[in-house]
Design a protein around this nucleic acid. Structure first.
Lengths: 232, 232
DNA sequence: AAGTGGTCTAGACCACACC
DNA sequence: GTGTGGTCTAGACCACTTC
């Protein structure tokens, strides 16, 4: 055995060959066996490195065929979904939230559709204004399904935020999230001390436990908000 | 040896124990060695399963300490960044784009800042309107760095889109992306046959090759656009 | 049939964090 | 020191795809 190679160093070297154009898009690269011989390591180590490159979209791998440099490399942006309180506190600001609404209601039709509910299930409807250093930053409008969330009607959501209660009490198995832009209504503009019609960033998130919908939430961000992340 | 276990089946079983609350948030789960004994498999197989759970944010793992069920499970939304033409064609629509502007200019200050450039580098400035079934869906405004992109001034971007030319000719090593909402200016509203001030979704993306900025782009989406993905 | 990636095994050593 | 996860090895078999 010569010096021990790490899968990371092999990953980086192969990545370099792709980025520098030594292996062009569409090219078939050497098989794992050959690379293992070149790098003087076990095939499993090369496999680990190649899997990483395939995960990040730089390679397409197929059995019997080999690993090909992607012709149209897929790139991904990964967004971390945090509890709002943590996001605020990590920025060094003081977090506070105010419960602005609480009711037991039938959801509007488009929410029923999103949550895949019958039209006779009464939901808990909760609205919250989230603040950083006492400045409103997010208006949260949320529908909760009592069929899944037993005892939800008895929880005191002025003491604990809905978000945190959910995180501690149920775990979702799947969810979807969508992003869009909207013009502030008059009422929404007042919340942010902004102008009617200003553009605001909206996140809508719906989460499920197996086939049952847990909750659907709409997060209206203050005008000027921008969400940033790294590309992979 | 009993029946052969796959890392996937172990992953799913452990995930079930977490989701069903058999292992509560904060709990220390058995060490790899013990799980390997339970599942009658090699430790490497358990390791692979646990690594998957840690990657998806359900576990926090530390050497010497063990694997702990995350108290505030991080959830991630992963967005696939495709070439616009592919996105349109995958929806079954006809793709077309029109070059609306092309100039050799100094970038505005905020773009220079974003691209980390001196204030004397002339960039190639290109604007494109992307259409699906002849309806404008994205207005693209882009600055390209000729220092990295040799010969960029000679390319005919009415024949090939900037996006595709870039993908085929350079590969970026890192990038950042941000999302926000904006009110359409009068000129922008005209492009989309929309009203002045309507809210539109904006993506800004800047990509780099090592320390040099390749390009920065602003994608203004048609009013009503919504970007959706699954939560992990 | 044959070649490629995907995975598993059993064992080993290392890196790290807590003692 | 000691116990945990992180990784590597050498070999093996399997799964898939093309021939």
């Amino acid at each position: 055995m010569t010096t021990r190679k790490s899968w990371q160093s092999i990953h980086d070297e192969l990545r370099r060959r792709i980025v520098d154009g030594i292996w062009q898009p569409g090219d078939l690269i050497p098989a794992e066996e050959q690379l293992a011989a070149e790098f003087q390591c076990a095939r499993a180590t090369v496999n680990r490195a190649l899997r990483g490159l395939a995960d990040s979209g730089l390679l397409n791998r197929r059995r019997r065929v080999g690993s090909r440099v992607a012709t149209e490399p897929s790139r991904y942006a990964t967004l971390k979904i945090d509890i709002i309180r943590l996001e605020v506190e990590q920025r060094g600001a003081k977090y506070r939230h105010a419960l602005t609404e609480r009711a037991q209601v039938l959801a509007p039709e488009r929410v029923q559709y999103r949550m895949n509910l019958n039209d006779d299930t009464e939901l808990l409807y909760i609205c919250n204004l989230h603040m950083a250093d006492d400045r409103p930053i997010i208006y949260e409008e949320r529908w909760l399904n009592p069929v899944v969330l037993h005892g939800i009607f008895d929880v005191d959501f002025s003491a604990i935020s809905v978000n945190e209660w959910l995180v501690r009490n149920v775990m979702f198995t799947r969810g979807d999230i969508s992003f869009c832009a909207t013009n502030l209504t008059e009422r929404e503009a007042q919340l942010f001390a902004a102008d009617l019609g200003e553009a605001a960033f909206v996140i809508e998130r719906t989460t499920w436990q197996d086939e049952q919908c847990i909750t659907s939430v709409r997060l209206l961000h203050e005008p000027g908000f921008s969400m940033r992340t790294e590309l992979i």
